[in-house]
Design a protein around this nucleic acid. Structure first.
Length: 425
RNA sequence: GGAGGGUUAGCGUAAUUGGUAACGCACCGGUCUUGAAAACCGGCGCCUUCGGGCUUGGGGGUUCGAGUCCCCCACCCUCCGCCA
């Protein structure tokens, strides 16, 4: 959430940011509720001051064994008035918070302004899409022909948007997880964490999935447990409601988790194959930094994710999301898009964002400089990478004329040394 | 699942069987000093329109007044049961 003070003191800055995003927010309405809340709070505080003074007097009467009945009777009325006023005040406070919570983060100056993804800006490109002297297949055709991806049986077991990997495909998925974590922990300085895959509502609120996006999530009936849609949720919440020492920053975490998404509202979209699943694996990178270094850390984090694609020899490009495409909490996001020959286009495989203090304010994650007051940290995260989509990219980019798949060299040590998934003879 | 104990500022501990949160350590500033330590003074959770207000795991209730009494919930510890 935004700082309420920023709304009060520089409403024009916020107004301009909302406009750049093309969002529809009644800022004047928010400011009116804020004014009302402040007025009620002021009045309530005055009455509380009176009550506190009277309370001390009654205590003194009691100590000195004097009669306090008259004072107590008088205070009874004040007490009731305060209660009524407090209800009003809390109503306004709840309303204000709800309103402020739906205001999106302020996009960074460097973010291209535009209505949707057509305004996204391509920053750089790495590698060239492979040329085939045959018609390349997509991962579904390849995987089914090899007998390593089974969508029909997955549908029997669970339903649509699930996949059953078998033999080399299952090994490939496991190898990728292992490979990505190894690179990030041994070469990029991240600390590996293995968090819970179920979280409570407080954590979902902390990172902003709740209350607004509940329909995108799976919940365990009759409990307060939710299946995580990304490791961002449990990992960012590690420091919720904490004040870190300045010397502890920056913190860099890498985490493998499965991710669960209901994909409500995505009906008919990406229904073929394992591009959009209810369950998929992801290695996530999460950073907690001081405000002054978060932008530099975003560049490094994006580079860390890119490094995986480079080591795997997968062609990709990096795109800056425009204000219209930018997520609610992000100040800036780079999408990394991998080339998929089966679709003849680039597809998102990682999303790297700087949330500045937006998420930290909401989750109440702070740090303290020597002798200073607590300040909000900046949080960042990015996929490093989405594993299922990396499997797709390898199958499609490394396919051979006979339907077999070459294994990228960097991955072979994690694949029992095999060089290829051979086509059945 | 059952029984008992617990949660107070960064840490560790108090608070008259309801009277308005105290102390130590750590930390910060100041005095003193060439500098530092020690000592002393002040600060030491948040907000503030500088009057003051809020804060004892969270939420309700009783009361003029709740850390304290009552109810609900969360988490931690110990034991029993069950279990990979």
């Amino acid at each position: 959430m935004l700082d309420i003070k920023l709304l009060r003191d520089q409403p024009d800055v916020v107004r301009a940011a909302i406009e750049r995003r093309g969002a529809d927010i009644d800022l004047d309405g928010v400011l009116a509720v804020d004014a009302r809340w402040r007025a009620l709070t002021h009045e309530w505080e005055q009455l509380r001051a009176e009550q506190n003074r009277a309370g001390e007097e009654i205590a003194r009467f009691k100590r000195e064994k004097q009669d306090a009945a008259a004072a107590i009777a008088a205070m009874k009325q004040l007490s009731e008035k305060i209660k009524a006023l407090d209800d009003e005040r809390r109503d306004a406070e709840t309303k204000l918070r709800d309103l402020v919570m739906v205001i999106p983060n302020i996009p960074d100056e460097s973010v291209p302004v535009g209505a949707d993804e057509t305004a996204n800006r391509v920053e750089r490109q790495w590698g060239d899409p492979p040329r085939f002297d045959f018609e390349p297949k997509d991962h579904v055709a390849l995987g089914e022909a090899l007998g390593i991806l089974d969508f029909d049986r997955a549908a029997k077991i669970a339903g649509a948007r699930f996949c059953l990997s078998r033999g080399p495909a299952a090994l490939l998925e496991r190898a990728l997880i292992h490979f990505m974590l190894d690179v990030h922990t041994t070469q990029h300085g991240y600390t590996e964490v293995l968090p819970p895959f179920l979280v409570n509502s407080d954590s979902m609120r902390g990172t902003g999935q709740l209350p607004k996006f509940a329909e995108d999530l799976f919940r365990l009936e009759g409990t307060d447990y939710w299946l995580i849609p990304t490791a961002e949720v449990p990992v960012t919440n590690i420091f919720r409601d904490e004040i870190l020492d300045e010397s502890a920053l920056p913190v860099h975490f890498a985490a493998y988790t499965p991710c669960f998404r209901s994909e409500a509202g995505a009906y008919g979209k990406d229904t073929r194959g394992m591009v959009r699943q209810h369950q998929f694996n992801k290695v996530e990178l999460v950073k907690f930094t001081k405000p002054e270094s978060s932008w530099e850390e975003l560049e490094r984090l994006t580079g860390d994710a890119e490094r995986i694609l480079q080591l795997l020899g997968l062609p990709y490009r990096v795109v800056t999301l425009s204000t219209g495409d930018l997520g609610f909490s992000a100040a800036k996001t780079y999408d990394i898009e991998v080339w998929l020959p089966g679709q003849d286009r680039y597809r998102e495989i990682s999303s790297c964002s700087n949330f500045t203090d937006f998420q930290a304010r909401r989750a109440n994650i702070r740090f303290r400089r020597a002798g200073g007051k607590p300040e909000f940290v900046h949080t960042l995260n990015g996929s490093g990478l989405a594993v299922g989509r990396t499997v797709i990219a390898i199958l499609e980019n490394y396919q051979q004329a006979d339907g077999g798949i070459m294994i990228p060299e960097a991955l072979r040590p994690y694949m029992h040394g095999i060089e290829a998934i051979k086509a059945p003879v």
